[in-house]
């Protein structure tokens, strides 16, 4: 007992015990990392100009607004149907076209299926750029270029999808077992034929599952891209917001919520079946 537990009894160590390892000095690195994190946070605190008093003040003035927000006006429902339908239409079209176009692009963007180095690099770079521009930014530019409405919405959803799908599918292709492709090439097939016959079947389930995922993202996105004028529910949000019709606003938001949750249920059910 005493041999083990006596504190400070260095003489009482068990015979045969070797030198104890010294405690590794990890703390300096940790302190530095922590300091950097704290510094960045402090800087962001200052930059965004945290001012709780203003919030509290505005909040007390906004009681009327809050009451309206918690009392959706269901008589407005009829007027929301058309934008709601448009939202779904935009999402479906954007998904269909985006996913169709992304399939060949994914094969061009994967090292496993495209042996042409310069072309691979080019496609990847372009797709990286396309992906790093947010959907709402596309929408605001298209609205200025082709005008307000669903066309701008569909175009921006299309580009948004392209970026996501090509990344997901080309990464899936990178990870696929390439045996079948090797066999096809060894039997005299061209790369195009080998990719089609041996690589496409291997990613097909993932392609379908990601398409459903992208549809889900699109429904979400198409509810809001209207805020800058690209059609759908977002345009309605923008309208009722400018006229301070908060009991209408809360109905629209409720609808978005229901739509997104329904789709999430559907998509997770379908995807679960696919994985099985």
């Amino acid at each position: 007992m005493s041999a083990v537990a006596a504190p400070g009894a260095s003489a009482a160590r068990l015979p045969g015990a070797g030198a104890r390892p010294s405690r590794p000095r990890r703390w300096p690195a940790r302190v530095v990392v922590l300091a950097v994190l704290v510094a960045i946070t402090a800087w962001s605190w200052v930059a965004v100009d945290v001012d709780l008093a203003v919030i509290a003040h505005n909040f007390s003035n906004a009681q009327n607004t809050l009451v309206q927000l918690f009392q959706p006006d269901y008589s407005f429902f009829g007027e929301t149907l058309q934008p709601l339908l448009e939202t779904i239409q935009m999402a479906v079209i954007g998904t269909a076209v985006g996913c169709a176009v992304s399939l060949p692009l994914s094969f061009l963007a994967s090292r496993a299926t495209n042996p042409n180095g310069p072309l691979l690099g080019f496609v990847r770079t372009v797709m990286n750029v396309v992906r790093s521009i947010p959907d709402l930014l596309y929408a605001s530019i298209f609205v200025t270029v082709v005008g307000t409405g669903a066309l701008s919405g569909v175009l921006s959803l299309f580009l948004f999808n392209l970026g996501i799908m090509v990344k997901l599918i080309s990464e899936a292709l990178d990870g696929v077992d390439r045996g079948g492709q090797e066999a096809a090439l060894a039997s005299g097939a061209t790369w195009l034929q080998a990719d089609r016959a041996a690589m496409l079947p291997e990613v097909a389930p993932q392609y379908v599952s990601q398409t459903i995922y992208v549809l889900e993202l699109n429904i979400r996105a198409s509810t809001v891209i209207g805020l800058v004028g690209a059609g759908g529910l977002g345009m309605l949000i923008d309208r009722v917001r400018t006229f301070y019709q908060y009991h209408y606003l809360s109905l629209v938001i409720l609808e978005i919520l229901v739509l997104v949750l329904l789709l999430e249920l559907l998509s997770s059910a379908v995807r679960k079946r696919l994985v099985r």
Binding site: G179, G180, G188, A198
Partner: peptide, 15 residues
């Protein structure tokens, strides 16, 4: 290559 068939250790099928 079309006149020469090849069989691989790991079968190399599209699964």
């Amino acid at each position: 290559r079309s006149e020469v068939g090849m069989v691989f250790q790991s079968f190399n099928l599209a699964r």
